[in-house]
């Protein structure tokens, strides 16, 4: 856990983690004329929405033969309607090879989010991994918050690798909660909480009672000893300001 990020003035760029919400087109089979007709039909329902949007093709539900998958035709047809295909979520190696041939990015995962529940962390939030059973052909996806309603006990770890983490129960001493985004704890926070673990410096930690062993945002951390004077055992939020972790009472936020 490093406390500072090294940035040199010489560098031409810096890599930052970013999460954006994308539209996925879940393809069942591909026949160009039918595809274009369906696409035109969809766009006519909300022309503004589809203008210049990035799109990914999801092949989890694809049932046609792989040889009929002509990505060049798909890209071309979408282009004609001002939609930009940027990547593919492939289900097998053949599909991946075809996508690579068309210079499309390969995206991991399927429509049903895998449960990245680490050891001993009971996933009590089936709602967040809702099965998109009657899946619409075009579905918008944002990284959902992971919601935990059960006490996180000593020795347990709960990890939200994409979005926020919301815990409606205590986080006990010896437990650890981690999230790519913000962390909300609506019980006493007695364990360790690490927000913005992929480097999101805007991430914050909110808790009903700050009794933490450690809090961390994007690698900057404070231990219990340093938190004693800052609203100990009261509702607090922790954020990063000019590379310094600042704890402020929630009611004066």
């Amino acid at each position: 856990m490093n406390t500072t990020a090294t940035t040199s003035a010489e560098q031409s760029f810096q890599l930052k983690s970013a999460s954006v919400s994308l539209t996925a087109l879940e393809l069942y089979y591909f026949e160009n004329a039918q595809f274009e007709a369906d696409l035109r039909d969809k766009i006519s329902q909300a022309p503004g929405f589809f203008k210049d949007i990035p799109l990914i093709i999801s092949l989890d539900k694809y049932q046609g033969p792989d040889r009929e998958l002509d990505f060049f035709k798909i890209i071309g047809t979408c282009r004609r309607h001002n939609i930009h295909v940027i990547g593919v979520r492939a289900a097998n190696d053949d599909q991946r090879r075809l996508a690579r041939g068309a210079s499309l990015a390969l995206l991991p995962g399927g429509t049903v989010k895998e449960k990245p529940a680490p050891a001993e962390a009971p996933d009590t939030a089936p709602a967040t991994t809702a099965d998109s059973a009657p899946a619409p052909e075009i579905a918008s996806e944002a990284a959902p918050a992971k919601i935990i309603s059960q006490t996180v006990r000593s020795g347990q770890q709960v990890y939200a690798p994409e979005g926020d983490l919301v815990i409606l129960a205590p986080v006990q001493a010896g437990a650890e909660v981690l999230a790519a985004g913000n962390i909300h704890v609506y019980g006493p926070l007695r364990g360790r909480a690490l927000a913005g673990i992929h480097g999101a410096e805007s991430a914050r930690i909110f808790c009903q009672s700050l009794e933490a062993e450690l809090v961390s945002i994007a690698g900057h951390y404070k231990i219990s000893e340093d938190l004693q004077d800052a609203g100990w055992k009261s509702p607090m939020q922790i954020q990063l300001r000019d590379d310094v972790l600042v704890a402020a009472p929630l009611d004066r936020a």
């Binding site: 006990r153 000593s154 006990q172 001493a173 010896g174």
Partner: peptide, 18 residues
Amino acid sequence: VRDSDRILGILQSKSRRA
């Protein structure tokens, strides 16, 4: 109390019911 908390976590994750 802390050890009890730990064992409660194991009950919730490593028992047959879990």
